[in-house]
């Protein structure tokens, strides 16, 4: 199937009448996923959005419930967002990140209704990456510029049109409803060419990384790696797979709401105990946790690396702390696998 680029705004307008549609929207020098009211608002030419698509499913601050306590008792009100949504123009790395996050929000112990309701009611329409950025390393972490993991439809840019690849039943239904034209053999071969031409030039070698992390918790490498890290939350907040959160009450007396906020392992209060003790006393322990969580603990827990290679942390770190360099340093460090 195929849709001409000039038909995209009209297609989105039709979707908007039925769904809450999120698409990349220009905000100054970058794009962000926003709920759009007109198909012409969508910017499909830019590379990744500044903030990942995770914020649609797991917002930075989410009201879990409102409460008020009166003489007659306590009253709780929960408002779970079950609007039907389409995420349009998501990149394969971000789509894959949600499949990783599903492990956290839906497992044997916990099922998070806020996240899962949104996931169940959302159709993911991705756009493949014809020109991956120099900071992209998706192919090193099981992804790829045209990876369909987590997508319902994948669009492949062939110049004046997008060739539409159906990935799931949800996607099939949407494509049928949209009435996309059939792609000609020429279109199909143009899509195949685009896929072939897309090169992820940056590779990060993660062979043996997990083995190393299994044994190097106390290795001297951690004394050096963190040294330039400022301890801000830019990398974690811009990361599509970071998912740590804190729960606070936003209330006056007994009336208010309970809110779930993104948290960051880089912050000194992240593991600060009520007693005043902090098991992660310095940046060293905090930065180590970020690497361990992504490349060891998440693998231990769910069998996957919690990094999709989107490059946001690389591009946005105020001091050019580059996760590719860090992983290289860890792999090449002195901690011996046979010790």
């Amino acid at each position: 199937m195929i849709i001409s680029k000039k038909d995209i705004p009209g297609f989105l307008d039709k979707l908007i009448s039925e769904y809450q549609v999120f698409a990349p929207v220009q905000e100054g020098s970058y794009t962000l996923f926003k709920s759009i009211t007109s198909g012409t608002d969508a910017v499909l030419t830019a590379d990744n959005t500044k903030l990942p698509a995770k914020e649609i499913f797991f917002p930075q601050s989410e009201k879990l419930f409102n409460y008020n306590v009166t003489e007659t008792g306590a009253k709780l009100e929960t408002d779970i967002d079950d609007r039907k949504k389409v995420i349009f123009g998501v990149r394969p790395c971000d789509a894959r990140s949600l499949v990783l996050l599903d492990n956290v929000f839906n497992n044997d112990k916990f099922q998070d209704p806020y996240y899962l309701t949104r996931r169940a009611n959302t159709i993911m329409v991705g756009i493949g990456c014809n020109t991956p950025a120099s900071t992209c390393f998706c192919t090193s972490v099981k992804g790829g510029p045209f990876d369909t993991t987590g997508l319902d439809l994948l669009l492949i840019d062939t110049g004046d049109a997008f060739v539409v690849e159906v990935v799931s039943d949800k996607g099939k239904a949407l494509a049928k409803q949209a009435g996309f034209a059939a792609a000609s053999d020429n279109d199909k071969s143009a899509a195949a060419k685009a896929k072939e031409a897309a090169k992820v030039t940056c590779q990060v070698n993660i062979d043996g990384l997990k083995d190393k992390l299994d044994i190097n918790f106390y290795a001297p490498i951690w004394d050096k790696i963190h040294e330039k890290c400022l301890g801000c939350g830019a990398c974690t907040y811009l990361c599509p797979t970071c998912h740590c959160f804190d729960i606070v009450d936003d209330a006056v007396d007994c009336n208010g709401c309970r809110v779930r906020n993104w948290d960051s392992c880089a912050f000194p209060i992240f593991t600060l105990h009520g007693s005043g003790h902090n098991p992660r006393t310095s940046n060293k322990e905090r930065y180590r946790n970020r690497i361990m969580h992504k490349f060891k603990y998440f693998v231990d827990n769910f069998g996957e690396i919690a990094c999709v290679g989107c490059g946001r942390c690389i591009k946005n770190c105020p001091v050019n702390m580059d996760i590719r360099v860090v992983l290289d340093d860890v792999r090449g460090s002195e901690a011996r696998l046979d010790s």
Binding site: E27, Q60, L230, C232, A234, T236, Y237, P318, V319
Partner: peptide, 12 residues
């Protein structure tokens, strides 16, 4: 409204 409270400004 753009602020994500990452505190990069403060830490830098």
């Amino acid at each position: 409204s753009k602020c994500i409270r990452c505190y990069a400004c403060r830490n830098a």
